[in-house]
């Protein structure tokens, strides 16, 4: 059964194009595959993303258009069409580049002397079979950058972030030119700062100036002015 696209995007029925777009952008950011890398719930996030994309495409084609029929239908429809296709293209292209990276790495590794074992480890990590991946890693002889990277990935998937971070950092230090390792490290840091900077916490009282602060500042300014012979606030 198909879900109600408005519900999927969390908006009122008959929402305008702008509202739909805003809701879509918000949700796409929330469930973006980059955020769920190394997360055991990645498949669920992907499914959610697909749902959101479908709902968005559907609304952009149908409901949004008919709702805005009277108010400059042609124009807004064209606009939304353009942006819609660019949106989903963007998302698709991101996905494609993602898989291109992966396939690129895979092929490169096959040409270079990447062992069969590493390929297997990757496979097991992707399928979520961490114990098997760990067993192979333990069996491997070389402790090169690739090994530390893969070990780091296994730790991250397990929820052992301290060791995961250390291992990936080590991989980057050993092979600073490798794009994949650096990318993984950046992603870790991004998740960390991303959570700290969510709108809820950032906009709260924790670091906002409050009324007390304001009065204090005014009073200080007034005192300073009076020092210099002037006056900012007459009554005090």
């Amino acid at each position: 059964m198909k879900k109600n696209p408005y519900k999927v995007l969390g908006i009122k029925e008959g929402a305008s194009y702008d509202e739909i777009k805003r809701a879509y952008r918000e949700l796409a950011k929330k469930y973006h595959p980059d955020r769920y890398r190394n997360n055991p719930l990645a498949d669920l996030a992907e499914e959610k993303m697909r749902e959101i994309n479908e709902a968005y495409d559907f609304l952009m084609k149908n409901a949004g258009g008919s709702y805005q029929y009277q108010t400059g239908y042609e124009q807004s429809y064209e606009n939304s069409n353009a942006s819609q296709s660019s949106h989903s293209q963007q998302y698709q292209s991101q996905q494609q580049t993602g898989s291109q990276y992966q396939s690129g790495y895979n092929t490169r590794y096959q040409y270079e002397d990447e062992t069969e074992l590493e390929r297997k480890v990757r496979m097991f990590i992707n399928s979520g079979n961490l114990n098997e991946a760990q067993r192979i890693l333990d069996r491997m002889q070389a402790r090169n950058a690739a090994w530390y990277y893969l070990q780091g990935l296994v730790f991250l998937r397990r929820g052992w972030y301290d060791r995961g971070y250390t291992n990936i950092q080590k991989a980057v230090n050993m092979d600073p030119t490798n794009f994949e390792y650096r990318n993984a490290l950046n992603n870790l840091n991004q998740q960390y700062t991303g959570y700290r900077q969510n709108y809820y916490y950032r906009n709260s009282y924790h670091n906002n100036p409050d009324m007390c602060n304001l009065c204090m500042n005014l009073w200080c300014a007034d005192t300073l002015c009076e020092c210099m012979g002037g006056d900012l606030i007459r009554c005090c």
Partner: peptide, 22 residues
């Protein structure tokens, strides 16, 4: 700093799970 990273990262993963619950 290290503890901060581990703690915050754990929370960010918890938050990801939470947002999937919708």
């Amino acid at each position: 700093e290290k503890v901060n990273f581990t703690l915050t990262y754990s929370l960010s993963e918890a938050e990801k799970a939470y947002s999937l619950l919708g």
